[in-house]
Structures are given as structure tokens and as C-alpha cells.
Simulated assay, not measured.
Amino acid sequence: MQIALFGMSADPPHRGHGRVLRWLARHFDHVAVWAADNPYKQHQCPLRDRQAMLKLMIQDLPVPPGRIALYEELSHRHSLVSAQQARERWPQAELTLIVGADLVEQLPHWYKAAELFQLANILVMPRPGYRPSDQALAAIRQQGGQVAIAETLKTFEVSSSYYRQTEDAQALPTAVRAYINQRNLYPCTASSKEKQAIS
């Protein structure tokens, strides 16, 4: 059984995440998803809300039932711990950790990266404006990592930071947008947008 491990900050989850998940659902037997705190980022929204939004997005994806599921218990600031927990849950599966192309340069320096690479293969999702360097890919392989790039995935030019900067409602799935509006999340984004309009 081949399982994709896709942890993300999901701040908030957007249509680009949805496209990646649909692609993964076609290429893996199962996709395990969670939201987590990224030690390299400052998050705008509490983890519990990001998990809830991610769950809403997954429920609306047009994929076979059970192919993609949210595993809140896999959430950890270190991917190694998430991968260890996944290995305990699926001891016989082939695990593949999904990372965005913007993270590849950091990846060799992640917490106990060599141990992580022993637990899971690495699959890089393309992102507009980012191309993994040969040096970063070589550093992963030198630490024992098996790394590949999802060349057939068509990129989607949207990100969580793009939404926070523009409040472009089309960037988000309908259910996620409704959740944000209901709970008045990302109010700082709205305030900064108003200030820009005044100045």
C-alpha cells in the first residue's frame, strides 16, 4: 500500500491545496492529511481552525470515499514525528512525504532529516516561482533520501499568503470561505487592506 503524507500549515487551505490532493488521490492508495505548525512560519490562525477548514475542504473533494482523510493525531511541528506516527499506524505501507517546491532548500536542514528520509520517500509538488536547486536535491540524496518531483502536476498560482494579502475569495473553496466569514478569521488582513486603500 502506498500512502502519501501531506502535512501543511493550511493558513488557510486553498484551491491549490485541493488540486494537489486530487492529484495525490489518483497516484496513491491513500492520502493522509493534517494541518501543523510550521517552525519556519508565523501562523495567522489557530491550529484548531486550520484543522477544521482542512476537514471541510477534504469533504468537498471529488475523490473516491476514504481515499483522502484528515489525521489530526499526525500533526506535529517536526515532520519526523509525524512520519514516525504514520509508520506505527501503517507498518507495512510505503510512505511518501509530500512537500512544496518552496521547502526543498530547507529540507536537508529539517529536524533529524536523515532519520526522516529513512522513514519516507520525498515527493516535491511544483509551485510557481520555485524550482528546487540541484544542490538541495543532492543534499537530500546524500542523506539517504529518495526524492522525486511531481512533474505531471499542473501548478496553481495561489497560496495562503496570497489570500491573506488580497482576500481573493476565488482562491478558497466555498466551505472554507464560509468558515472564515462565520468566525471572522484573518481580521488583520482586512485591516491592512483597508489601510492600503486609504493611503
Rank of each mutant, 00 (worst) to 15 (best):
L116K: 10
H78F: 11
A150E: 06
L70N: 12
I140C: 04
D168P: 03
P132E: 04
Y163I: 10
V124N: 01
K112S: 15
Y130I: 03
K154R: 13
F156L: 13
R141I: 02
Q142I: 00
E151M: 06
R89Y: 08
A138S: 08
D60I: 12
A148D: 11
G66L: 06
L97H: 04
S82A: 15
P108T: 03
L70K: 07
Q135K: 11
F117K: 00
M57T: 13
R87Y: 11
H78P: 09
G145F: 05
L123W: 00
A69G: 12
R127S: 07
H78G: 06
A86E: 14
I98V: 15
A113E: 10
L153W: 07
L97P: 01
G144P: 01
I68P: 00
Q142F: 02
Q165T: 09
I140H: 06
R131P: 05
R89M: 15
E105S: 14
H109E: 13
R77D: 11
A86C: 15
P91N: 11
Q59K: 15
A139R: 06
P108W: 02
I98M: 06
V81E: 15
L103G: 01
L137S: 02
P132H: 02
D60K: 11
K112M: 13
F117V: 08
D60C: 14
L80C: 08
A139E: 14
A148H: 10
K154M: 09
